[in-house]
Computed example of a mutant assay.
Amino acid sequence: MTTRLLTPRPSQLARDAFIDRYGDIYEHSPWIAAQAWELGLDAAQDTPAGLAERLREQVDAASAEAQLALIRAHPDLAGKAAIGGELTDDSRSEQAGAGLDQCTPEEFARFERLNQAYRDRFDFPFVIAVRGLDRYAILAAFETRLGHIREQERRTAIEQIHRIARLRLEQRATESRSR
């Protein structure tokens, strides 16, 4: 099996070019890519797995406040940003892939109620890597995770964000191969 490489290769990019290309992997948080670049990049970070790990290290080393800001940078699922067309391209594609753009009015209302209950309980949005899930599985996860304690849910949200980042990098490697 051949290891897929990211194009352009992260290790070969100047700081600004790296941040332009990979700064959006973590939603509205280019500081993560900037810190990863500052550490130095080599061929190990030219693969989706390698770059995902380097980016992950920056998030995991960040303060709890910075991690909460990262979580809060994510939109509500099937929320006002989605309805208003204000999602990033990645978020729009991911939510559409899970069928969230095809919810019935009743399902949108349920998402809205769960989003509000979740925000009221945890003070940040519900984050889940939706790729491979449908809206029914997402709604079930909402219900389950509302039973968590805040610290457990903060850690779960960060793990889901790492999964989203890894999937986005893998998607970019696939897209660059097909060009």
Rank of each mutant, 00 (worst) to 15 (best):
T2F: 10
T3I: 12
T3E: 13
R4L: 15
R4I: 08
R4C: 08
L6N: 03
T7C: 14
R9G: 01
R9H: 02
L13S: 06
L13G: 04
R15Y: 02
A17H: 10
D20A: 13
R21F: 00
D24H: 06
E27K: 08
H28L: 12
S29Q: 02
A33E: 00
A34P: 01
Q35S: 02
W37Y: 10
L39V: 01
L41R: 04
A43C: 01
A44Q: 02
Q45A: 10
T47C: 10
P48H: 01
A52F: 04
E53I: 01
R54A: 05
L55K: 02
R56D: 09
E57S: 13
E57N: 05
V59D: 02
D60V: 12
A61H: 12
A62S: 15
A62C: 07
S63T: 09
A64E: 13
E65F: 03
A73P: 04
H74A: 06
P75I: 08
P75H: 11
L77S: 05
A82C: 12
D89N: 13
D90W: 15
S93W: 12
Q95H: 01
A96F: 04
G97F: 12
L100K: 09
L100D: 14
D101F: 00
Q102G: 11
T104L: 04
T104A: 13
T104H: 07
E107N: 09
E107Q: 05
R110M: 10
R110C: 08
R110Y: 05
R113N: 06
R113W: 09
Q116F: 00
Q116D: 15
A117I: 06
D120V: 02
D120Y: 07
F122A: 04
D123S: 10
F126D: 02
V127S: 04
I128K: 10
I128M: 08
G132L: 06
G132R: 04
L133D: 11
L133W: 12
L133S: 09
A137R: 15
I138T: 14
L139V: 10
A140K: 15
A140G: 14
E143V: 08
E143D: 14
T144R: 15
R145F: 03
H148W: 04
I158E: 07
I158G: 02
Q160C: 04
Q160H: 12
Q160G: 13
I161Q: 02
H162G: 02
R163E: 15
R163S: 13
I164A: 07
L167V: 02
L169R: 04
A173S: 14
S176N: 10
